[in-house]
Amino acid sequence: MASPTPLSYLTDEQKQEIKQLVCEILEVDESEVNEETRFRDDLSMDSLMAIEIVAALEKRLQVTIEQSDIQQIASLSGIYEIIEARSAG
């Protein structure tokens, strides 16, 4: 049975770990970031930082993120979607 809305595979603890990792790389306080904060527009993330985030996520969460997915590294919600898709697939 297919669910009309995808279930979240990430726990709140995993989401918090991802948020901490992103904030560390972007050198911002966690209070400045929510699921919809745009990394490039709101936090001045550059492409090198995006690659650093991808590498850290792959290492920490044991997932592979495709080059085509890097554009989704624009917000926490985008990262969660990528991780969940890679973990489910």
Rank of each mutant, 00 (worst) to 15 (best):
E66W: 10
G78L: 01
C23K: 05
I53A: 01
P4W: 09
T5S: 12
I53M: 02
I18W: 10
I18D: 01
I83Y: 02
L57N: 04
Y9M: 15
E24H: 13
C23P: 04
C23R: 09
V22Y: 05
A85D: 15
A2I: 12
I18G: 04
S77M: 08
I51Q: 06
A88Q: 15
D41Y: 06
M49Y: 02
N34Q: 05
E30L: 14
V63K: 08
G89S: 12
A88M: 13
S31V: 15
L43G: 05
E84C: 07
M1G: 15
Y80A: 08
I53Q: 02
Q20H: 12
Q16I: 13
I25G: 03
D46I: 02
Q62I: 09
S44M: 05
M45T: 02
R40Q: 11
L43I: 03
E52T: 12
Q72N: 13
E32A: 15
L7C: 07
E17N: 08
E35Y: 06
E66A: 15
L61W: 04
E84P: 07
T64Y: 12
E32F: 11
L7P: 08
A88R: 15
P4M: 08
L48H: 02
E66K: 12
E58I: 03
M45W: 03
F39C: 05
L26M: 00
M49H: 11
M1K: 13
R40E: 06
Q67G: 03
I79P: 06
I79F: 08
E84A: 03
I73V: 14
I70D: 01
E58R: 03
V63A: 04
L21P: 03
C23S: 13
C23M: 07
I51N: 12
I25A: 00
